[in-house]
Simulated scan of single mutants.
Amino acid sequence: MRALRIDRFGTPAVLDAVDVPEPEPSPGEVLIRTVATIINPVDDKTREGAGNPRPASVARDRKPLARGAIAGAA
């Protein structure tokens, strides 16, 4: 599959389109097919190396998602 990889801070030129292996879920996990996503201003700032690259909401440990809304096929 194709992915955008960032291995250093910088301008949009640091985005590299690369081939990566298809992810394989481990036992007890599911694989969710993503058909669209969004990049927001925080993503741009992180790519540039400005601000906190790991906001507190991402840095702390997460509990497994017990329920939620997901559209599409599973």
Rank of each mutant, 00 (worst) to 15 (best):
M1E: 13
M1P: 12
M1Q: 10
M1F: 02
R2H: 15
R2F: 09
R2E: 15
A3M: 08
L4W: 09
L4F: 02
L4D: 00
L4H: 03
R5V: 14
R5N: 04
R5Q: 14
I6P: 00
I6V: 10
I6M: 07
I6L: 06
I6H: 11
R8Y: 05
G10M: 08
G10Y: 05
G10A: 07
T11Y: 01
P12N: 12
P12C: 02
A13N: 11
A13T: 00
A13C: 02
A13L: 06
V14Q: 11
V14T: 10
L15E: 08
L15F: 05
D16M: 01
D16C: 00
D16T: 04
A17P: 06
V18F: 00
D19A: 12
V20I: 15
V20C: 06
P21Y: 03
E22I: 04
E22G: 07
E22H: 06
P23C: 01
E24G: 03
P25I: 03
P25K: 10
P25T: 02
P25H: 04
S26M: 11
S26F: 02
S26C: 03
S26D: 11
S26R: 14
S26T: 06
S26E: 15
P27T: 04
P27L: 11
G28K: 08
G28M: 02
E29H: 13
E29I: 03
E29F: 08
E29S: 05
V30L: 07
L31P: 03
L31G: 02
L31F: 02
I32Q: 01
I32D: 00
V35H: 12
A36N: 04
A36K: 08
A36R: 09
A36M: 04
A36E: 10
T37K: 01
I38P: 00
I39V: 09
I39E: 10
N40R: 10
V42E: 05
V42S: 06
V42F: 01
D43N: 13
D43P: 09
D43K: 12
D44W: 14
K45P: 02
K45Y: 13
T46S: 04
R47I: 04
R47A: 10
E48P: 00
E48M: 05
G49D: 05
G49H: 02
A50I: 14
G51Y: 10
N52H: 09
P53I: 06
R54N: 14
R54K: 12
R54H: 13
R54W: 08
R54A: 07
R54I: 15
R54L: 10
P55V: 09
P55C: 04
A56K: 15
S57L: 14
S57K: 14
S57E: 05
S57G: 09
V58A: 14
V58P: 03
R60Y: 05
R60W: 05
D61M: 15
D61S: 12
D61E: 13
D61T: 13
R62C: 01
R62E: 09
P64Q: 01
P64T: 02
L65E: 00
L65N: 04
A66W: 04
A66T: 13
A66I: 10
R67K: 09
R67Q: 14
R67M: 10
G68M: 06
G68Q: 13
G68R: 13
I70A: 07
I70Y: 11
A71I: 12
A71N: 14
A73M: 11
A73Q: 12
A73H: 13
A74P: 09
A74Q: 12
